[in-house]
Amino acid sequence: MTRHRIFTTSVASVYPHYLAKAEKKGRSKAEVDAILCWLTGYSHATLDEQLVRKVSFEAFFAQAPRMNPARSGITGTVCGIRVEDVEEPTMREIRYLDKLIDELARGRPMAKILRQTDADN
């Protein structure tokens, strides 16, 4: 199978694009960070560390403290590809993240983005 270039791309190099997409639609850095922390289990401090260290997407997800089990509820398309149909695990995690950032930019409430139910509150 072909290794995708995005696997070796640093999260820090793409992070400003996530921020710009969110901020252009009136959302905040705190919300982008909350999504990343929810998805991966990183704390805000360890997320910042990963960004400073310029870890690759592959390492970022491999080193994640606890991938959120609720991420399997993320469905829909990113760039015309259904996220739930992506077979390669690292690419699926990247697509989940892309989908969550898209939802943020579209104005979806954070509780829905983070797949929270009334029982979670």
Rank of each mutant, 00 (worst) to 15 (best):
M1D: 10
T2Q: 15
R3N: 11
H4M: 15
H4N: 14
R5I: 15
R5P: 10
F7C: 03
F7G: 00
T8F: 14
T9H: 10
T9Q: 14
T9P: 08
S13C: 05
S13I: 04
V14G: 12
Y15V: 03
Y15L: 03
Y15N: 08
P16V: 09
P16R: 02
P16M: 02
H17T: 15
Y18G: 07
Y18T: 03
Y18C: 02
L19C: 05
A22M: 04
K24N: 15
K25F: 07
G26C: 04
G26F: 01
R27G: 06
S28Y: 00
E31G: 03
E31A: 01
A34N: 06
I35T: 05
C37A: 07
L39E: 11
T40I: 03
G41I: 08
G41S: 10
S43M: 06
S43P: 01
H44F: 13
H44T: 15
L47C: 04
D48F: 08
Q50Y: 06
L51Y: 00
L51Q: 02
L51H: 00
L51P: 03
V52F: 04
V55E: 12
V55W: 05
F57E: 05
F57I: 09
E58P: 00
E58R: 12
E58V: 03
E58M: 14
E58A: 09
F61H: 04
F61E: 04
Q63G: 04
M67F: 11
P69Y: 11
S72M: 13
S72H: 13
G73R: 14
G73C: 13
I74V: 14
T75G: 12
G76F: 06
T77R: 08
V78P: 05
V78R: 01
V78C: 08
C79V: 09
C79W: 10
G80W: 00
R82Q: 12
V83S: 01
V83N: 02
V83W: 01
E84M: 07
E84G: 11
D85W: 09
V86D: 06
V86I: 15
E87D: 15
R92C: 07
E93I: 08
R95D: 13
L97A: 09
D98F: 13
K99W: 06
K99I: 01
I101Y: 07
I101F: 09
A105D: 05
R106H: 15
G107T: 01
R108D: 12
R108S: 12
P109C: 06
P109F: 07
P109V: 07
M110F: 04
A111F: 10
A111T: 13
K112S: 10
I113R: 00
R115I: 11
R115T: 09
Q116K: 14
Q116S: 06
Q116W: 12
T117H: 08
D118W: 13
D118T: 14
A119D: 13
A119T: 13
A119G: 05
D120H: 07
D120W: 04
